[in-house]
Nucleic acid binder design. Structure first.
Lengths: 198, 198
DNA sequence: GGAAATAGGACAAGACTAGTCCGGTTTCAT
DNA sequence: ATGAAACCGGACTAGTCTTGTCCTATTTCC
């Protein structure tokens, strides 16, 4: 289905939450939040979130404090954690076609197939996008006010009919941006509202 | 695992193959290739590929001819079919978090959660990338000679440590491009070779 | 010593993926 | 007509992945 797993989703949510709790977790070693707090706030099953947080500790994104008054805090600056790192922890490598990584050069389908090179370019673009956003970006108050992340150059003449339910406007926006400016600018309040479903 | 399914992969491969067989399939209604031909060429199980091709017919990407001497040809211009459309046929909607589309406004986790807006921006970028490449692009001889698809602006100070096996160079390349130019330029022959695993 | 919290292994239901199997239909060539 | 070649499409299966739950430690504070 080409989507993030809940685990990755929960991981990002938790990291972002902890990034906004840093005041509680300044130098003295205090924790930002407990599993229970985060789970209740975001309606995540407690034991499941616990697994996610434990994994984030093992991978070096979080530091934990055991015992009562325990909890979690970020192990590094929120600006030094990007979405790709987190997603890879939970979902494994991000790959478009298995051919990119599955084997050591013994691709059965490769000789005649040149689907791969163009897809690889897309693949790199996706990795770049994911790597370019940090937890700090997510934690700031108005994400739409951010610097543009990506500027898409739609090729003239390329197929541009895109219909995917409510993300139609989103694509249209990307296409607009190719002409009128970077992502996030030139948006009226109303169009911003259209993009907010959740 | 955030990857395309084999079905989508096979679909793209088949479409790309048929796009290069257009000479056999000019106006007279001749077909470009049969299931068996494509399956053998790319080492895909015949019955499985058949399903994929049948679906592409139902979705309007291919036209089929039954009976002996039958087969498939593109139903529209290769330049009018983009990768996103094809991927959506097989893998369903491309969504980063289920929250984008799952519900009609009743997101349990939404009130306090602002992970979504930044992710949505990434999501739009990915859709834009996928929508910007067409079957015609894939079918041309040297994909690396293409116009740049995307130009990434890495934010200064953003986390840039990215390690994912062999795609490390890929990311590095994206980052280089943020400084030195669009994707695909400034590549020595050797670095091109590094990117080709398959 | 008890409460609160993290740590982590085992396990299970359900969904999805990849692929097989089989019977049917259409069309062409002989 | 008849058979071969090809498309059509539903049913099924083995395996894997996802999303949890459950239970038992272990640590730390009061």
């Amino acid at each position: 289905m080409l989507k993030l797993t809940k685990r990755a989703d929960y991981g990002l949510i938790a990291l972002k939450h902890l990034a906004t709790q840093e005041r509680r977790a300044n130098g003295s070693g205090e924790v930002g939040a407990t599993t229970k707090e985060i789970a209740e706030l975001y309606r995540i099953p407690v034991p499941h979130l616990a697994k996610v947080l434990q994994k984030l500790v093992r991978e070096g994104f979080l530091r934990s404090a055991q015992g009562s008054n325990g909890g979690y805090r970020l192990a590094k600056e929120a600006s030094q954690i990007n979405a790709l790192e987190v997603i890879r922890v939970f979902d494994g490598p991000v790959i478009l076609t298995s051919c990119f990584t599955d084997h050591g050069g013994s691709c059965e389908q490769s000789e005649r197939c040149n689907v791969r090179e163009p897809l690889r370019k897309i693949h790199e673009g996706i990795l770049g996008l994911l790597a370019s956003i940090t937890i700090a970006d997510m934690a700031s108050d108005d994400p739409l006010a951010h610097q543009p992340l990506v500027k898409l150059y739609a090729k003239p003449g390329a197929a541009s009919e895109v219909h995917q339910g409510d993300s139609e406007q989103a694509i249209q926006r990307v296409h607009d941006d190719a002409v009128s400016g970077p992502l996030g600018r030139n948006l009226t309040g109303q169009r911003r509202e259209e993009l907010r479903e959740c």
